[in-house]
Design a protein around this nucleic acid. Sequence first.
DNA 1: TCAGTTCATATAGCAATGCTATAGGTGATA
DNA 2: TATCACCTATAGCATTGCTATATGAACTGA
Lengths: 242, 242
Amino acid sequence: MSLDGQLPPKMRLLRAAAELLAKSAGASVSTRQITQLAGVTAPTLYHHFGDKEGLFDAVVAAGFEEYVAGERDFAPSGNPLEDIRRMWDNHVQFGLKQPELYLVMFGNIRPESRPAIVADAEALMEEMLNKAAAAGQLNVQPREAARSILAANVGVTLMLIAEPAAERNLELSTMTRDAMIFAVSAAQAEGAAPEDSGKSSVVVAAIALNAALQASHSDQLSSSELKLFLEWLHRISTSTSS
Amino acid sequence: MSLDGQLPPKMRLLRAAAELLAKSAGASVSTRQITQLAGVTAPTLYHHFGDKEGLFDAVVAAGFEEYVAGERDFAPSGNPLEDIRRMWDNHVQFGLKQPELYLVMFGNIRPESRPAIVADAEALMEEMLNKAAAAGQLNVQPREAARSILAANVGVTLMLIAEPAAERNLELSTMTRDAMIFAVSAAQAEGAAPEDSGKSSVVVAAIALNAALQASHSDQLSSSELKLFLEWLHRISTSTSS
DNA sequence: TCAGTTCATATAGCAATGCTATAGGTGATA
DNA sequence: TATCACCTATAGCATTGCTATATGAACTGA
């Protein structure tokens, strides 16, 4: 019952809330529990965070920073698709290590409350996919691919969290991961997929060029020219031949 | 303020809870609101459902029956993969029509509380995938495929719910859906995928035979023979050639 | 040095919540 | 009619999130 280091009460509240949230298996955590563990009285909480939800938002924000740090910390391997795999695995590991926090971040999403985190996570994924696109490894727009992969990533993580820890089979994760990456990557364009083999190398090249352009901030075209050019590229790279 | 038809109080409580849960955007619904709307006093609720959570569980169970009914209601189209697409779309539509209910069902999943629903949903999906496997359209075990597809389906639905209704882009759903089905189906085995082109037609055939056997309850082998035979099949069909 | 100002914490308590001990009413059966 | 199981209501308890108000500490400017 002692988080009374010399830390300021704000930090102690954050840590107490995070700790109680982590160990309470879904049961609701009361402000009295939090303040007691932090060695602080109620008004202090409301002075710093305004609200119980405000405190939890702060906990979530801290957790998200940890998540982002984990996603950025490994050095790029040279193969963007391989980096995306690692990103996926990092995401899953984060969810399994801090399930309660993860559930608050990605399980309780509501339109009016918290899509900012999702947008940030998508941006992180898109950033990596842009490299793949620039290398000609992508079959679809990086943004769409990022949203799609992240959605599957979240779904898999939630499913794994829902399972009793003993029965968790990580093959679900690797299988879904590779399925998504494969479907999104340019590998299939080399002849297979009978239904949409029309995704010719033209499309892949257009996507790659698009990504390269947006990444390099080229100055060789005026902004209005660039806008139109990108629009054409977009039309080409999203065209389906069916 | 009147759900006082001649329905029994138990039904009125269920409907009141469902209605309040549906319109309260994430805010917690109090038992007093529910009992008042149902025209009933508190002990009645606890007599019938024991708990507030018990009542919500009942609401979820009713919602899940509705979900299952929706998943079963369309006639099979002859093409199992096409049926799986419809199943996916049904799932997404259900989530978008009843977001609050869906969030309780799939967003708040915790290992100790509610994996039964997930297991049922998986079984539903697996049932359909067995047909695809029997038709030689599947590249992996039906159970694994079902878990994978359902996970992606849940993730996509949650992401769409998280978005403001105005900006919802269903292309995320169709794209992820087709990506998953493509990756799981046997189509790619016909030559493309350079990394694991080893998924030869032997594997596909083994999976198909396995599904057919389990579906037909063949009596031509004794149960112990069948068990061993299935084990071998399983070994074949899960072998990777990398 | 000291009044003034601001920030941070504590005392005490309110309204709303989930839930229950107890009792009253209703219908079917004997 | 009496009994008995079932269902519902009155009243109230403990806990919840939150706040009105007051006290202390630290810094500012003269």
